[in-house]
């Protein structure tokens, strides 16, 4: 046993240290980010029509990013053309087609399944309209503003492995591997778990769905807990975003299996509240800063239209909220 532990090379204490360092690094990155934003007040979109195409606005993340973009375009003196596809791919494609016909000065696409939107982003580019994206990397996008999903995935996975003491079964929701940020976070979980031979991802993996995400996750986890009735047979539940986490947390609490911890990403206020509750099974939630991401994307548009070169990706720092620091994170995000 002890030999195995040393062979792994990373003990629980190291993990805790690691996540603390990561947290500090993220926090300082956050400070730098806000300082640069304040220094570039001279940006302008006067007389520009900026199209904002959202895949949906039914999640905290999209809604915050979408509204922040509209506000930022207006603040910089431009005219926003904002469309919301309500998570319907057919509508999303139709809206992009119409946007291309409207010939805006730039299109900013928020999220979306890459294989569905990419042909139309290419058509926009071919029509001479600059395309920028939020949280979806595409070869047809000049710049993608996003959270550092590699960092998010790694931080969340390390927190999870640390919380369960480096061993045990974890349940994974992997329904949206086609969505790039989810795929990166999942891959990072697999990368971290690879070095902890006693941590096992249970097969088959669960599939989270849209809509009815919460109810569906609740049902699936309730069924799974019946399949694994012994305490300790499941240590943690992971999902690439925090709406399945919400349902999973409720199911774990309802089944009285509070030894299980749940993990997710996005910083939805209701999940952060659960993380803050010492009795709740919610273990950690990596909070992105969607409004900041939205504003940054629009500032990038202004920079591009002013002739500046943009990096392929602009990363807005994410904040890992665990039981210890959740109140600070919520304060930083302006929630509660």
């Amino acid at each position: 046993m002890s030999q195995e532990n040393s062979a792994q090379g990373v003990g629980r204490r190291d993990l805790l240290k690691l996540s603390a360092v990561a947290g500090a690094a993220l926090a300082s990155a956050g400070l730098i980010g806000s300082r640069t934003a304040a220094a570039e007040e001279e940006l302008s979109l006067k007389g520009k029509r900026i199209a904002i195409s959202a895949t949906g606005t039914d999640h905290f993340f999209d809604l915050q990013a979408y509204n922040a973009q509209i506000e930022e375009v207006t603040r910089l003196g431009g005219e926003p053309i904002a469309v919301d596809a309500g998570r319907n791919d057919g509508k999303l494609v139709a809206q992009l087609q119409t946007l291309i016909a409207q010939k805006p000065d730039a299109i900013v696409q928020i999220l979306g399944t890459l294989s569905v939107i990419d042909p139309w982003l290419k058509k926009a580019r071919d029509a001479g309209i600059p395309v920028l994206t939020v949280d979806v990397g595409s070869t047809n996008s000049i710049n993608n503003t996003t959270s550092d999903n590699w960092g998010i995935g790694k931080d969340l996975a390390l927190q999870l492995v640390s919380d369960i003491g480096g061993e045990g079964n974890i349940v994974v929701f992997n329904g949206f591997y086609g969505v790039t940020p989810c795929a990166i976070r999942y891959d990072q979980l697999v990368n971290v778990v690879k070095y902890f031979p006693k941590v096992k991802i249970l097969e088959p993996e669960l599939r989270d769905v849209i809509p009815n995400t919460v109810q569906d996750a609740f049902t699936q986890i309730t069924a799974l807990l019946n399949k694994y009735p012994e305490k300790g047979s499941i240590k943690a539940i992971w999902s690439a975003w925090d709406i399945p986490q919400l349902g999973a947390t409720q199911a774990v609490a309802a089944a009285g299996r509070n030894e299980i911890r749940t993990y997710g990403v996005d910083g939805s206020p209701e999940v952060l509240q659960l993380v803050a509750d010492p009795n709740s099974p919610a273990g950690a939630d990596v909070a992105q800063q969607p409004a900041e991401i939205g504003r940054t994307a629009i500032q990038n548009v202004a920079r591009l239209l002013a002739g500046q070169a943009l990096p392929r990706e602009t990363y807005v720092p994410a904040l890992l909220a665990n039981k210890q620091n959740v109140n600070d994170v919520s304060k930083k995000l302006g929630i509660g």
Binding site: R87, N88, D89, G90, V93, T113, S115, V116, D118, P119, V209, I210
Partner: peptide, 16 residues
């Protein structure tokens, strides 16, 4: 036609 328009099959057809 839908496979062609959306470059594949996607979820949520019931909304139609």
């Amino acid at each position: 036609l839908s496979v062609s328009n959306l470059s594949g099959s996607t979820t949520g057809s019931g909304e139609m």
